[in-house]
Nucleic acid binder design. Structure first.
Lengths: 175, 175
DNA sequence: ATAAACTTTCAATATATATTGAAAGTTCAA
DNA sequence: TTGAACTTTCAATATATATTGAAAGTTTAT
């Protein structure tokens, strides 16, 4: 009787978390299903199969398969072969610090680095500083690039730092 | 002859920037047109009207109007009434540090804060620490919440800090 | 009050993105 | 090898999101 209540509560809480994580993801350019698979794996103590994911999230095999591949390419999910089992299992990193640094690493590589390259090119394009429009353009692009480079370096350091540094000591430094 | 060349180059560079900023935005949950309007205003020395934006970005009046409203609600664009003019003009903040802190402030308010509230609720839901599933769930949620709170505080401090601190002094601190 | 100049709204539509599911591909035990 | 168990692919489809444009609303000069 109590046991059932507990399970209900947990199931409900998981559902809420998965749903919210999915909605959250869509605000950050991540599709709902991918974020939900990630959420489900994060709160699952044991590895899950594609069929588990299909059933628990009520999505198709193809959808699960493609999004799992994507999550693996982001380094957020691992494929797991259990000895004696035919099926593949999947787990997600549960340490949120590792998840965050992994996402930072990938987004830096996929988005920030190429953007910085482009900005550097755009700054070189023209240098008649007399023209108001040219000046404004070069100034703005230059400012963005400088900022981006600084962010890039800061993120590099975060990636190299460790969790306890962030979770514990950071505040004192900033005060 | 030279003048034309320069204008061509600048126009081309602007186009590239606007297009890339738009594509970049879509990876972060911002619609292409909104990001492009923002980009165009950032590299425009003078304020622009809705008609300017429509023409230069080749989008409809309604589209410009709605996205401009959105950008204003994000605090990234200002409405401007020029004396003696009937039309409204628009400008964007060009200091990228101010742009960044503004975006951080808004995303914190709109996304991080509500998420932290939810996580706090989810942690309270159940406390039979014996159950492996419950334990895993509470642990993972707790970890995410702790991390989120720390990020929240760090971002608060960034918002209060100033540009030169970030652009100049930050590196030494992190080393 | 009128009307021209301008802004806003929103139902219809177009476009982009995500999802399905069945077929093709792969692996592996017998 | 065969075929059962499983994974991957991708054209078709569904869904979500963005965009249009014309009508309604607003403002301001006369």
């Amino acid at each position: 009787m109590f046991g059932i209540t507990i399970i209900m509560k947990l199931t409900e809480a998981k559902k809420q978390f998965i749903s919210s994580w999915g909605a959250f993801g869509t605000h950050w350019g991540i599709n709902r299903t991918m974020a939900q698979i990630h959420a489900l794996l994060m709160v699952s103590p044991d590895p899950l199969t594609q069929d588990d994911l299909m059933e628990q999230l009520d999505v198709s095999r193809g959808n699960v398969n493609m999004n799992i591949r994507d999550l693996i390419s982001w380094g957020l999910v691992d494929r797991l072969i259990l000895t004696g089992e035919r099926k593949e299992y999947f787990t997600a990193e549960k340490d949120i610090w590792k998840v965050a640094t992994q996402i930072i690493k990938e987004r830096k590589k996929r988005e920030l680095d190429p953007m910085l390259k482009l900005l550097a090119q755009l700054e070189k394009i023209d240098d008649d500083k007399k023209d108001k429009h040219v000046k404004q353009f070069v100034d703005t692009i230059g400012g963005i690039r400088k900022f981006g480079k600084q962010a890039d370096q800061m993120l590099d350091m975060m990636i190299k730092a460790d969790e306890s540094w962030f979770l514990g000591g950071l505040l004192k430094i900033f005060k």
